[in-house]
Design a binder for these strands. Structure first.
Length: 574
RNA sequence: CGGGGCGUGGCGCAGUCUGGUAGCGCGCUUGCCUUGGGCGCAAGAGGUCCCCGGUUCAAAUCCGGGCGCCCCGACCA
């Protein structure tokens, strides 16, 4: 069934709370039409009966609609050109637009909000700007944390936990750090009913408190490198928030390392950037551009900041992970020193790196489509959903045990699987439901399959008939694994293709301005802050990063025309 | 922090202008019926109308104050 065209759409904007609605996305009935619903139920049956048997459909149709209007009073039902009252009545009764997401191409922002809520990834919390991560969203986050944690451990890092509360004086010890963070600090002034002597801040990041600890723990070059990571949440008092992308509190990991030399610290910084890149590409199927940040975009307190930048489905950029070389800034502020082999006292070189729940936003915005979420198999909480189909006890007795058996086999082989045995819900509903929630592969198993020894596989990355195929129950595990691999690959290919199509390499400022409206511009930049600033003012695009991979040529700055030796990615950003 | 919108069963809204019985849809519960792309029928449960104060015989509605949320513009993962 096609979603109905409800004629009153223009000008009928959702109200604020409508944005939260799970159920009425896109429903734009005028109140008069809505009120028709109550009166129309009985009549609609009548209409069906009449329409089914008469040759004078158009006349009868008109007659009945007039009667209906008359009965109901002030009712602006309908478009007289509607195909028939039959469908008209059904529409009013059960508008499918109610169940449908806003189209991604029409309202990207609203589409995003709806997906987060309807796929049950997260919900709004009672405090402005905070989010509740729901089990399904948290399961996704857990898979992200595991994929990263594995990589951290493999490169010699260990996990620990540092406190939530930090003495305010700590934040003030590193001057650019204070400048960067003080506007967004949450400060605790009272405890135990008394005003505190020294206010505490809720960590916006943990460089300072970890610096304090490292100063105690590090004495000798033998204590280095120190490689610690922590999984936690931090608070930054943001003014404009959006679930996952920007919330007051967010979850992340922050790695903090100390090294004997600048070279080592730089190598660590770059290694972690590589790890983020590898994770994004291989596990999340998100192509990213690893690069160096300009001075203006650098972390408060870092000598050098690197990031991976990804293109979202609307052409905007999202910083998906960052890695900082902190030089000796924090080492000096917190006296993190060691005795080297010659017995000389040296300041350490430190790094920090983080990836947050914002990454979930990237997954949504890179892969999602009009049907909802699309999750890459390697991160999906459920890689496969099994929908059994039957219409009576007899069929149920055949189908259900078979579905359970096949599910059991697949689950035992390590495939993350959900068997949807909810009763009283039609298979069609389940199809749509799990598509909205992004499950990569659906297995449909009905009486016909049971008889033929087959299963229907439906790929989420190709909605509808196109993505369906029939596989034998024998050797299903292999077929499923192959399908998941293919989906993983096709998601990456598609995202990469999209990014390439929407990235323009240009030295012409007019062309540049056009490019950053819809995607990325790769352009020569002279490296001066004023040019960067002007570009931002004039186009709203910022310097996302200077890609690590550079051509060896040189060129002219896209803004000022002065000689430039590096090309940067410019884009509007989240 | 500036501009706009909103606050009424779980969710979305009507009712507020013009004061007098709190209503609709969805969802939920129970039963029947259905189930290969968002089923249907019937019967139920569920509300301090954001808070405080005022006016009035009477306030969801009028007046004053407060709180909260969402959306659009300057900083950040």
């Amino acid at each position: 069934m096609q979603p109905p065209e409800v004629s009153a759409a223009p000008g009928f904007r959702r109200t604020a709370h409508g944005l939260r609605s799970l159920k009425d996305a896109g429903l734009r009935l005028p109140s008069s039409a809505a009120s028709m619903k109550s009166g129309e139920t009985a009549s609609s049956e009548l209409l069906h009966a009449q329409l089914g048997t008469t040759a004078f459909v158009p006349r009868i149709d008109f007659f009945w609609s007039v009667l209906l209007i008359w009965l109901i009073g002030d009712c602006t039902i309908s478009d007289p050109n509607a195909p028939s009252q039959k469908s008209g009545a059904r529409r009013a009764k059960k508008p499918m637009s109610e169940l449908k997401l806003p189209a991604r191409s029409e309202d990207f922002s609203e589409w995003y909000n709806q997906i987060v809520l309807r796929a049950e990834l997260a919900d709004y919390a009672p405090v402005r700007g905070c989010m509740i991560v729901r089990p399904y969203g948290w399961a996704l986050w857990e898979n992200i944390t595991q994929a990263l944690d594995r990589r951290f451990k493999a490169t010699g890092h260990v996990n620990a936990a540092f406190p939530l509360l930090i003495p305010r004086s700590f934040i003030e010890k590193e001057k650019s750090h204070v400048a960067g963070f003080s506007p967004e600090l949450a400060v605790v002034t009272h405890g135990g009913g008394e005003e505190l002597e020294e206010p505490l801040v809720i960590r916006p990041t943990s460089e300072t408190i970890i610096g304090h600890a490292y100063a105690k723990w590090i004495q000798s070059y033998r204590d280095l490198p120190l490689l610690i990571n922590q999984w936690n949440s931090v608070v930054r008092w943001e003014l404009r928030t959006k679930l996952f992308l920007r919330t007051l509190e967010f979850f992340w990991q922050e790695g903090h390392t100390a090294h004997a030399t600048l070279a080592e610290a730089e190598a660590e910084t770059r290694q972690m950037l590589d790890i983020y890149t590898d994770f994004a590409v291989r596990d999340a199927a998100i192509p990213v551009i690893p690069g160096r940040k300009s001075a203006a975009e650098r972390f408060a307190g870092a000598d050098e900041t690197y990031s991976i930048e990804a293109m979202m489905g609307d052409g905007k950029a999202l910083q998906a992970g960052t890695s900082h070389n902190l030089g000796q800034n924090f080492a000096k502020a917190f006296e993190i020193r060691y005795l080297d082999q010659t017995g000389a006292l040296q300041y350490c070189w430190t790094t920090s790196w983080g990836l947050s729940t914002r990454f979930i936003g990237a997954v949504i915005m890179v892969h999602g489509d009009d049907q909802g979420l699309v999750l890459p198999p390697r991160l999906a909480p459920f890689q496969v959903v099994v929908v059994p189909i039957f219409k009576n006890d007899e069929e149920k007795a055949v189908v259900l045990p078979l579905a359970q058996k096949l599910s059991g086999t697949l689950a035992d082989s390590g495939i993350r699987l959900k068997m949807d045995s909810r009763e009283g819900i039609s298979p069609g509903f389940k199809f749509n439901d799990w598509e909205m929630r992004g499950v990569p592969l659906r297995l449909e198993l009905g009486p016909r399959d049971a008889a033929k020894g087959s299963v229907v596989l439906a790929r989420r990355d190709r909605p509808g008939r196109e993505g369906k195929s029939i596989a034998p129950q024998q050797g299903l595990e292999t077929a499923v694994r192959n399908a998941l691999e293919e989906i993983q690959k096709s998601l990456l290919d598609r995202a990469l293709d999209f990014r390439n199509k929407n990235t323009v390499t240009t030295s012409d400022y007019e062309e540049f301005k056009k490019a950053v409206q819809t995607g990325f511009a790769l352009s020569w930049w002279c490296g001066s802050a004023p040019c960067e600033e002007k570009i931002k003012e004039e186009t709203k695009a910022t310097m996302r990063c200077i890609p690590l991979e550079q051509q060896r040529r040189s060129g002219k700055c896209v803004y000022c025309g002065q000689p430039a030796i590096e090309q940067g990615i410019f884009a509007r950003a989240y």
